[in-house]
């Protein structure tokens, strides 16, 4: 009995996500490799211990050439965790697995790791400019009469939002306390924005100018964890859990 339970326990799978650098070789590969050497020759440990994915969407390589490239990178202490951007048919045993992501990250420009030319004498290069995620976190409760407006992205509130307070976000709104005031998500016309809260007692919920007042929120949902999203032109609200 207890054995069976233990065995079942050992068979658990957990999905996990990790951050990885995706490096994107450009044709011709030989030149790209020498450029890589030029840029990172002085800081060989830059990729050591990092998760690196190889994005081959910019080049068209045969299976053998991919194997060669992976070996070339390994010589430079760059361990490739997986490959993306290739036809799965090209994959051969011995190559790192093919990664698929259903979410294409739409960053306006790839983060520039390799500074254009002008390598400095210093071994330590300034860290690449980090892209600030467009989100705002508020650790205190939002009080009656206060208004939080953040058109650039998501708003996360760790406390509660008081009756008579207002949150306006260009993206989604997350409230980890009770939401008693008004929440207006997707205020820049983003119909995909959502509102999440630990306890819905809201006066008004709105996404992209479609709204519901407290009266139109079902009693069975009140005071429970809930989310709101837009389906066509209707604001939907449901409990979570």
């Amino acid at each position: 009995m207890s054995n069976a339970a233990r065995q079942r326990h050992s068979l658990m799978f957990r999905p996990r996500s990790y951050m990885a650098f995706a490096i994107i070789p450009q044709p011709p590969i030989v030149d790209w490799l020498s450029e890589l050497d030029g840029s990172f020759g002085r800081s060989e440990s830059f990729f050591a211990g990092q998760h690196v994915a190889l994005d081959l969407s910019a080049v068209n390589l045969s299976s053998n050439a991919i194997g060669q490239l992976v070996a070339n990178l390994e010589e430079r202490n760059i361990r490739v965790l997986g490959i993306e951007g290739i036809d799965p048919a090209k994959w051969q045993p011995g190559l790192p697995p093919v990664l698929r992501s259903d979410r294409t990250l739409r960053t306006p420009e790839p983060v520039q790791l390799i500074a254009p030319a002008a390598p400095t004498a210093e071994a330590v290069r300034p860290p690449p400019q980090k892209q600030q995620p467009a989100s705002l976190m508020i650790e205190d409760p939002v009080r009656s009469g206060q208004s939080v407006v953040f058109m650039e992205g998501d708003v996360t509130i760790l406390g509660s939002v008081g009756s008579g307070a207002e949150i306006v976000a260009g993206g989604s709104i997350h409230v980890y306390g009770a939401l008693r005031g008004r929440a207006l998500a997707g205020a820049t016309g983003n119909g995909r924005a959502r509102i999440f809260c630990h306890r819905v007692e809201a006066e008004l919920l709105a996404i992209d100018s479609y709204y519901r007042t407290a009266e139109e929120i079902d009693d069975s949902i009140r005071s429970r964890p809930a989310q709101a999203w837009l389906e066509g032109e209707t604001l939907q609200i449901s409990t979570m859990n």
């Binding site: 009080r143 009656s144 009469g145 206060q146 008081g162 008579g164």
Partner: peptide, 17 residues
């Protein structure tokens, strides 16, 4: 009662700002 509590919440916001 609710109206007093909401006004107090407003005042706390002012005290913090």
């Amino acid at each position: 009662e609710v109206s007093s509590v909401r006004d107090s919440d407003r005042i706390i916001g002012l005290l913090d700002s």
